[in-house]
Computed example of a mutant assay.
Amino acid sequence: MKIRFLVLSGILIASFASFWVYGNSVIAIGERESRWILQDMWGSSYFYARMEGLNEHERINLLSLREGSSKNQELIDHVMKNKCTDDSVRCYLVMTSASNLLIDAREYDSGLRGMVEAIDRVSAKEFCPIAYESAIIRYKIEVMSSKDSWSARRSSIDVLEKIKANNGFIKSLKTETCTRLAREKPKFFHEYTMLVAHIMVFAGGDYAKAGAYIDSLRNNEG
């Protein structure tokens, strides 16, 4: 009986040790594989940002990126009441918010046309396209969610590799203007990183560990 107890105790201790080692290995890999976006892109100070220091159209734009946004009446009302066609950054954000709502509602063609039209109108010389890039990643998440796991994995890896190589999917986000905006309006970059983490989960492997690591940081926010 004593021998059996010792054997069972040994198995439990070995199992616990294995899980502990594996868990720490996953965390280490996740931390390492997420450095390119958590540290190298704009520094690490932006990540824990909250909805503070934002004006109304900026706040609405960030909320429009979230799943189910097309059913949020506050967002719909704001977009409808603030329709615009000028070349200001404000109008660009309003139009991009409208595109995000359309994408959430799976009106993909209209949503994509709207976001491209919005960014093409902006006349500001110093301009960071973080809202545009976030809208694209939100669209990619919607499309991947409807694919089989193999296709979603392949597509997501392609997206991540392109972002890592170019510092953005279409437009670079690693610029002086974006770094300055990350200090002034860090919530835009926090939300973008969470969208990229979602793509990482689709990719599997070390990317998925990085995505889980990023998500754990959000869940551990004070």
Results as ranks from 00 to 15, higher is better:
I3H: 01
F5K: 05
S9Q: 00
I13P: 11
I13E: 02
A14F: 14
F16L: 13
F19L: 14
V21I: 15
V21S: 05
V21F: 15
G23P: 03
I27G: 00
A28P: 00
I29G: 08
G30A: 13
R32I: 01
R32S: 07
S34C: 14
D40F: 07
D40Y: 08
G43F: 05
S45M: 14
A49H: 01
M51A: 13
M51W: 02
E52L: 12
E52M: 10
H57K: 01
E58F: 05
I60G: 01
L63C: 01
R66F: 03
G68N: 08
N82E: 09
K83M: 07
T85N: 14
T85R: 08
D86I: 01
S88C: 09
V89E: 15
L93T: 02
M95V: 05
S97P: 00
L101W: 01
L102H: 00
S110W: 13
G111E: 08
G111H: 08
V116M: 10
E117D: 15
F127L: 12
A131C: 04
E133H: 04
S134G: 04
A135T: 10
I137S: 03
I137H: 07
R138H: 14
M144L: 14
M144R: 02
S146H: 07
D148R: 11
W150Q: 14
S151G: 11
I157F: 11
E161A: 08
K164R: 15
N166T: 01
N166A: 12
N167S: 09
K171F: 09
L173D: 05
C178I: 07
A182L: 09
K185S: 04
K187G: 00
K187E: 07
F189E: 11
T193E: 06
M194S: 02
H198P: 10
F202M: 13
Y207E: 15
Y207I: 01
A210V: 06
A210N: 06
A212T: 11
I214T: 03
L217S: 11
N219A: 15
E221Q: 15
